[in-house]
Computed example of a mutant assay.
Amino acid sequence: MRFKDVFSIIGPDMVGPSSSHTAGAVRIGRAARQLFGSQPNEAKITLYQSFADTYRGHGTDVALAAGLLDWGTQDERIPQALHHAAEQGLIIDYVRAGGGAVGVYHPNTAKLKLQSDSCTMLVTGSSIGGGNIEIVGIDHFDIRFTCLYPTLAIFHVDRMGVLADITREISKFSLNIGHMDVDRTGRSGEALTVIEADGEIEKELIDSINAIEGIRLIRVVDLT
């Protein structure tokens, strides 16, 4: 990823100590919560490489918990996030990945398995520097987006014309597409499309996309 300005390197307005291990971790947790659609009851978080080595010392554990509570990077409650999570009934289990995972993911990577009574979702995200992140996987889909812009995650049937239908609806709202990524389980199987937009994603747009044949689920990630 190419940083857009010096502030992308320094990091966002945040509660420290580290833009990568703390601010980036908050954003990974928050993106995962928004993809899940609500606060989960349980979260099993697997930490890889650098995250696994230093997660308590750099506050990665409390930062991920804060993100799951939908807090921003500047929230002064971040150091007490685990306490607040427990009070709200959110059970978090941290697991350090073994040495066999070296080289598989970016050094600052977390895989979050989120669960509620009726839903389970797996979200993998990496903190790539300066508080910036990249989501690199959702469930069994190999998908990538940065969360720098409002993002649509659209789960749908893989059928001919569905992408054209989606982009047609987006154009009706005069919304420019900055980035799109698509993955599918197989021809005519399940698919996931992520679209980063240059502006606010309105509820009316979500409703219009939901009305398209074959749309299963829509989530909006907006960390702006």
Rank of each mutant, 00 (worst) to 15 (best):
R56I: 12
Q39Y: 00
D165T: 06
R33W: 07
E200I: 13
L112T: 10
R77E: 15
H106P: 11
V182M: 14
S127W: 02
G189W: 11
I10Q: 09
D183S: 15
R219T: 04
G11E: 08
A211L: 02
S116E: 05
I154A: 00
D183E: 06
L223R: 04
L64M: 05
L223G: 09
H140G: 00
G131A: 03
A101F: 14
K111M: 12
A101T: 15
I9D: 00
L192S: 10
S18E: 08
L114T: 03
R216I: 15
A101V: 08
S118P: 00
A86T: 10
S127C: 09
D198K: 11
G103R: 09
D53S: 15
H140T: 11
P40M: 00
H179S: 11
N132L: 09
A85M: 04
I170M: 12
G98E: 03
I212Y: 06
A86W: 07
N132M: 05
T167M: 11
F51T: 06
D70G: 01
E202A: 10
T151L: 00
F51M: 05
R168P: 01
I128C: 09
N210G: 01
P40Y: 03
G161F: 04
I209A: 06
I138L: 12
T60A: 14
T185H: 04
M121V: 12
D5P: 14
A25W: 01
D183Q: 08
M180E: 12
L205T: 06
N210I: 03
P17D: 08
T120Q: 15
V6G: 05
G24R: 01
